[in-house]
Design a protein around this nucleic acid. Structure first.
Lengths: 301, 301
DNA sequence: TTTCATACATGCGTTTTTGCACGTGTGAGA
DNA sequence: TCTCACACGTGCAAAAACGCATGTATGAAA
């Protein structure tokens, strides 16, 4: 007659996932277990929760009602887990820090090594993804993000201000220096699909030749000499084979932040990681910005 | 690394109950199961949740934090269960109706028989207790209560207005009729520990001889001829051996209500029960009130 | 039509969880 | 001091839950 809380959670997962397999993955169990828990829940309630269709389990209104309440219970669970994490004074156990792939590869990796040497008991995990992980759900304890603001509900520290500029192979740089009116090929990122006005005004021979949705692909294309790319300063500077070209002068860009949920922020491990990360990036702050006037006078990199 | 919801619930039950046995009773499991779940929770969290003392488990701050969040999850669970009950259109399964013992014994029993005959599939449970069961937690689906108001968060229907009056054996009635100034012994209920002013004014020979905390005891004492008792009209009238005596004229008293949580109110079973209960009591409404002027002229019962 | 992928059902052996019986320690009351 | 009630720990066997392997149905793609 009594429905267990884990069964409520299972109904919720199945309503969200739409299939036994999806729900099972979310819960970390075999999908047959999900099927059996649903069956048990229906039996104890005496109500049908899902229609078994050929292409999956379709939730009834009843199941949706259950899932709605389960979502609130889950929010409460996440709040609890965050607060437990925040009170945790140990420098051991799991710590999850997420950052964009390219930031890790070029900037964070050495610092991560320093951290794990200082705190060998910490089980550090670094999901290197461009996805925005949900810090409320503790998909990560800390996130290094490139954005204008830390976000409404999150605590954050600005690690560095950033500029972008144009980068290409030395060949492109030489050619443009020799003849500024020669055709210039651009490689564009889908997230910024237009050439800046300053470029079209000063270099009307610019033309867009490639568009990519992936920054790694852009880097590769630029290294191969396919054209100019607008890159964050640090990325252009640390990428072998690229030099800054003075077509697009340094432009303000989104800053680098480290952000975390306020509940988790006080945790010993999170504090220790920040104490390692913040000086590391601030010491290199010059790497992220261009030199000289940002709006008018082009600079040679 | 992940704490199951049922384990969170177990921590909550143990914080509330204070001992393994109490928590186990609440959860409907063996107490060893509680001990093992707590142990498992501590292992997966890597935190101590309870101090094992000679006289029970003492919660740590951590456990209290868990319990606090669990309480909110539980509230959400109760809300869900109420809404599921409210949507239940079946006239089968469990239905719990609570009422004060004396109301059931003297008034409701015949009506209950009618109801179960009309709805044989309903598994009717009637906790006959003077305790106020928590309708939010679904300790009962409906409650018949004697009170001034139905309560803030509850739905309710007034079944009958009530009066009280003085009752005693025929011997007392005769004696008082023969000599109104003779000594009158009273049996008082702890909840109303004073004689009404109207009694002391008109019958100054009144004296309090007995005080009881239980209404059944008062009935017995009055039946045994120990003195006069102030009783709800219906109770005095249906109790063998008692007659109304005109010392205390009929006085307004708390009404009889049937109340339920708004979520549960629309349920088919609850509606069916109300449809049986309300006419039954309203048809007998004269039983609950005295005749004539309520404040000045005493009546002979 | 055949093949493949998705999504679920079912049977079986294993693992986990649970209940029960029994034992320990402690404090209140005779 | 003795006994009893209470609260908890432990070992073992039963029960429940689980994962895996296998089989079926359906729809899309070759």
């Amino acid at each position: 007659m009594k429905l267990g809380w884990d069964d409520i959670k299972t109904v919720h997962a199945l309503v969200r996932g739409g299939s036994l397999a999806a729900a099972a993955t979310e819960l970390g169990v075999n999908y047959t277990t999900v099927a059996r828990r649903i069956q048990r829940a229906e039996d104890t309630l005496g109500l049908k929760l899902f229609e078994r269709l050929a292409d999956g389990y379709a939730p009834t209104d009843t199941a949706r009602l259950v899932a709605e309440h389960a979502a609130k219970m889950e929010a409460e669970e996440h709040s609890l887990m965050r607060q437990l994490a925040g009170r945790d004074g140990r420098l051991s156990g799991k710590l999850t820090v997420t950052a964009p792939q390219l930031l890790i590869a070029h900037l964070l990796a050495p610092m991560l090594e320093t951290f794990v040497k200082q705190h060998p008991e910490v089980d550090l995990r670094v999901p290197a993804t461009n996805d925005i992980l949900d810090l409320s759900r503790r998909e990560a304890d800390l996130a290094v993000r490139i954005s204008r603001e830390p976000g409404d509900t999150l605590k954050g520290l600005r690690l560095a201000r950033q500029h972008t500029a144009s980068f290409a192979t030395q060949g492109w740089a030489d050619r443009i220096a020799a003849d500024p009116s020669a055709p210039i090929d651009w490689i564009l990122y889908d997230a910024y699909p237009r050439l800046p006005d300053i470029v079209t005004a000063r270099y009307p021979s610019s033309r867009v030749r490639y568009r990519f949705d992936d920054m790694v692909a852009i880097l590769g294309a630029a290294q191969s000499g396919l054209g100019l790319a607008r890159l964050p300063m640090f990325l252009g500077r640390v990428t072998p084979g690229l030099v800054q070209v003075p077509v697009l002068p340094p432009q303000p860009y989104a800053d680098i932040w480290v952000v975390g949920h306020a509940d988790v922020w006080p945790s010993a491990k999170v504090r220790a990681f920040r104490d390692c990360l913040v000086p590391h990036l601030r010491a290199r702050r010059d790497l992220f910005v261009g030199e000289g006037d940002l709006s008018t006078s082009p600079q040679v990199g």
